[in-house]
Amino acid sequence: MSILSRKEDLVCQQVVELVTDYLEGALSRSQRRRLEAHLAACEHCTEYLAQMRATIELTGRLRAEDLSPEMREEFSAIYRRWRSEDD
């Protein structure tokens, strides 16, 4: 955590590296306070954090490929093969 070892205020360039630890709840209480103090005074970093959250949300909207009936049948066949091996 050398990035936070100094007592001075955080600068934007440090904040962007700490965003994930912040969102993950992995910062210590004092680290978190310093980060939030910076955010309260910096609209650009506030925007940056909002964009990281938006990115997470947009990534989460990706939809899965569903299992087609053919594939379902294929897996049933796998099961039956295994059963007959097993007996």
Binding site: L23, E36, L39, T46, E47, R53, E57, G60
Partner: peptide
């Protein structure tokens, strides 16, 4: 996820689907 200062956009804490 820890709640930040900024409620600028809302991101659900966990997606129900997932």
């Amino acid at each position: 996820m820890r709640v930040g200062l900024i409620p600028a956009i809302s991101v659900p804490r966990r997606r129900h689907r997932a």
